[in-house]
Design a protein around this nucleic acid. Sequence first.
DNA 1: GCATGTCGCGCACGCTGTACCCTAAGGTAG
DNA 2: CTACCTTAGGGTACAGCGTGCGCGACATGC
Lengths: 238, 238
Amino acid sequence: MPEDDKQIPSVWARPRKERQQPLLTRESIVAEAVRLLDEEGADNLSMRRLGSRLGAGATSLYRHVANKDELLELALDAVHGELPLPGTGEWRATMSEVARALRATILRHPWLAAKLGEAGLAYLGPNMLRQSEFMLGVMEDAGFPPAEADMAVTTVTAYVVGVSTGEAAWLSMVARSGQSEQEWTERLWPAAERAVQDFPRLRARYAAQRGGDTSSSNEETFEYGLQRVLDGLQTRLG
Amino acid sequence: MPEDDKQIPSVWARPRKERQQPLLTRESIVAEAVRLLDEEGADNLSMRRLGSRLGAGATSLYRHVANKDELLELALDAVHGELPLPGTGEWRATMSEVARALRATILRHPWLAAKLGEAGLAYLGPNMLRQSEFMLGVMEDAGFPPAEADMAVTTVTAYVVGVSTGEAAWLSMVARSGQSEQEWTERLWPAAERAVQDFPRLRARYAAQRGGDTSSSNEETFEYGLQRVLDGLQTRLG
DNA sequence: GCATGTCGCGCACGCTGTACCCTAAGGTAG
DNA sequence: CTACCTTAGGGTACAGCGTGCGCGACATGC
């Protein structure tokens, strides 16, 4: 009803009406938190910064979220919502696909690895549960008895999280340095070479990788290990 | 030379002589940090608290350590110094032994998992390097070509760190709650059952584990996955 | 004797998470 | 229309954090 607008003598006194629906919701807060984490890293997420990005005060967030830890758990699970669950086909192909998607997600959100280290793999967020359920189904359909399928899923997830954690930590370090990966590697190299000097095999490995492409060699390592893990599981089906 | 002691007119003015050798050293600081982390968890490590445990002020620590992050890296590597390197024998047995020792260390220091998630697996501490070098040697002696041995070591370590991280997070949670594992499990169970209600396979898994011994089933899962990983690597040697 | 360097201390700054209380805006009941 | 209650958001305040800086006390070399 705009009738009473006329009665207002001054624009300045008009009691700007808003608030049809709340401008802060749990979803919008979590989504913005993920964005902030992606852009600025875990160290730079504070309730005040998050609040001001949303045009709100820091303490207003507490209406929708119990505390910062809970917010991070929500962010953790929200990111797991990105994971696509492929249609079921051959079990190895399906598991590989899920594993690659999980790794990609962790690399896209490097802060995720550190938070997973605090929250554990058995966290109860619905998106994470959905993913576990899916993998369990794939393994059971492949012929693993339920109890073993559970352990098999844990094995694959543990491997993926373990490798990706290492890669993500590296990416975070590079990001914090503000330099390109190339620059950062070159700056770090002398220290690394000095550190491995007493270790002949490590020294040889470093020398062999000198100048190589980090990300493609990471990918190769990931794929190698993943296939070995799946090989190992396959021996149980023969 | 205690001669000049007599010349001091008042006890209060006596310039209490100490400090023959520094009471703070990098080693003592790191060792105390590890103790504090073990006893009170990562959240409760602050420079002030650490300082006062050592009978020193917070900022005195900065004489020996550049900043808190560096301190944590040192603590990380110090703990890796606990790891025994078994004498070389059959490669599978040796790798299993190293893997179990690594898991045991992580469970003994649950804060370690989270820090590993931040620092990455390729950190340059001497103790961690020593361990990598050892494992590389085992795999090369087993017949893996150097480049592949490297990837194989990464695979095993990633798996171990991945599983243990999950277990350690659980232990930290229990420790923070101040309750026994039994109590905590029972308190959490209803929420967990509600969460898995929509997921038939997870629900079945939970029901099957009800009342079981957490730590022994964790151990079984760890061992299962470890043997699968080693199986997978073995296929490359045939 | 003095100069120089090392060690530890205290202060101060800007920042954090969050408990507590206040205000303003609907929605509902009388 | 009024009176009340709920609910979203804001402001203030507190205890604690990491750490830069400058100080005095001491050990050592000339």
